[in-house]
Write a protein that binds this DNA or RNA. Sequence first.
DNA 1: TTGAAAGCGCTAACAT
DNA 2: ATGTTAGCGCTTTCAA
Lengths: 337, 337
Amino acid sequence: MGRLTIKDVARAAGVHPATASRALNPLLPGRISAGTTERVARAAAELGYVADPVGRSLRTQRSGTVGVLVPDLLNPFYPPVLRGVQEVLRGHGFEALIASTDNDPGRAGALLDVFRGRRCEGYVIASASRRDDAVGRLIAEGVPVVLVNRLTEAAAPSVTSDDARGIGQAVRHLAELGHTRIGHLAGPSGISVTRAREAAWRAGLRAAGLTPERSWVVRAGQYTASAGERACGTLLDRGEVTAILAGNDMIAVGCYAAFAARGLSCPEDVSLVGINNMPLAEWLRPSLTTVAIDQEELGARAARLLLARLADPAARVGDVALPTELVVRRSTGPVRP
Amino acid sequence: MGRLTIKDVARAAGVHPATASRALNPLLPGRISAGTTERVARAAAELGYVADPVGRSLRTQRSGTVGVLVPDLLNPFYPPVLRGVQEVLRGHGFEALIASTDNDPGRAGALLDVFRGRRCEGYVIASASRRDDAVGRLIAEGVPVVLVNRLTEAAAPSVTSDDARGIGQAVRHLAELGHTRIGHLAGPSGISVTRAREAAWRAGLRAAGLTPERSWVVRAGQYTASAGERACGTLLDRGEVTAILAGNDMIAVGCYAAFAARGLSCPEDVSLVGINNMPLAEWLRPSLTTVAIDQEELGARAARLLLARLADPAARVGDVALPTELVVRRSTGPVRP
DNA sequence: TTGAAAGCGCTAACAT
DNA sequence: ATGTTAGCGCTTTCAA
């Protein structure tokens, strides 16, 4: 089964290979007669010809490949994002290379080198820290980059969630349940969403007529369940808050463990709100009240932004902020009298 | 910033491009003098040269690319598998293209066509059903394929888990806790692991001196939490069993919801055992007793098998069965007196 | 051991 | 509108 080349198609259609190539690539300069186009298309279809991307890439200097970097593939938040990215990319003939830094910013450089080696045309970066050398360099070089969820000091088109809205709803929801001391388990500093969420929490409290206290915030070193468990333990042991806004759902997952370890029941003793509405959030016990973000849409929009820049490098593609919405489940309840 | 080519390296080292190419590819026929090799290597390093995979692929007819197909990227079982696959592949200069069928066997064909179009050299298939046309065709064509976790009627090298051992331990564990009526929530028929696990459950009961009843098995249509919840509901409503072996951890996740809906507490009223020990299994409440499979190793071994076949298409690479081990957590307890 | 030359499959520039 | 030619970057004959 020797590979089928464009020569085979050309021969079958009785034309020159270059003509066949043009006939199969619709919008090229120097159009082809309808009849020829038709014959070539038919021949290609009958033979089952698929253009070799390697030969094409070598000639066009475009790989049809995009690098996607996520911070933690084991965090259920990201698979849906990848799904959105891939769905859009495949629809446009692009393919994604995927890598995870596994929450180690130091690995980004090496992984981006792999992508570069593969001649990726552009990048979707969901793993950026605010001052991220590797990503900053990429942006400085003028390589098409779209940031997802996390921004860098270097500016690039981005898709984020409008956390302020959902977090505001979350705090109001808790306040309406009678909570006046609402803690926050922030993610690692150095990541843009961490700041944004903490600021939104602060603003939300003020809007509800409450005064955020310094001691109500504990910083989890990572957006992981175990970091969340530790941070939550610290916060609980201070004994001040009756409700907690976790920096994301994984931190919230860790909270359940911290509650159990202290014999606290949720929501009777403590109310808990997460952020992300990751796929398993509704299956936790109690099911998790959380600020929902459309993860797949996040990825899809990022892919579209990137495709726009790829199609026209001069295009000024903007930023997108997706709305967030509180989803009330069973992890929040009235404050203990 | 024009891309760096081998010509640049050759010029810097004062040799012919062909010589430079040979110097950089260690084990080629026609060896190069140590001195030249040295100079070329130094020049390449100083310039930061990385061979263009496109040019190389065109010449060698090898893409350095492998297609990986999983059934459900949203199932936390698979990300670690992918991690294992990627780790090994990258270590050997290969890159993975990843796709998920999203539990729809019908999508496999189209996704494999995408892979084929990208000239993947081989495939890691974790999504196969027992009679899987698309995968069967691949195998019949002699394309290097390694199956993970799920076997097809067509034979190909595979990496699976030795579920029998772990499931045997699980049933014994439950029996020792006094359970005599132990149900099973099987996965979708048509997938090899489903059969293997059901058979192991049956064998485990017999080994414990118990007789498996037909009515103790309910089949979940998918390996998902919602399918698990439905199936578990059916089983519970029959009111016969005091313990449940779920077909995998996602089905077990659904069980927690079914328990809650019926006011049953776990493990006081029902004991539950999952299979996989997916990340998050330990974070569920109660934490899930489960038959652990080393997911990352599953992926890593599959990648190694595939690399062996790619390096030598005639190589007879065998099958691997990884050991499983029961991990006892808090979802299992003594039967109610 | 190294150089010269050819060619992988494709498409863009040029020629007709 | 179509054919001709050339060349993308690399490796692998073949020759020296």
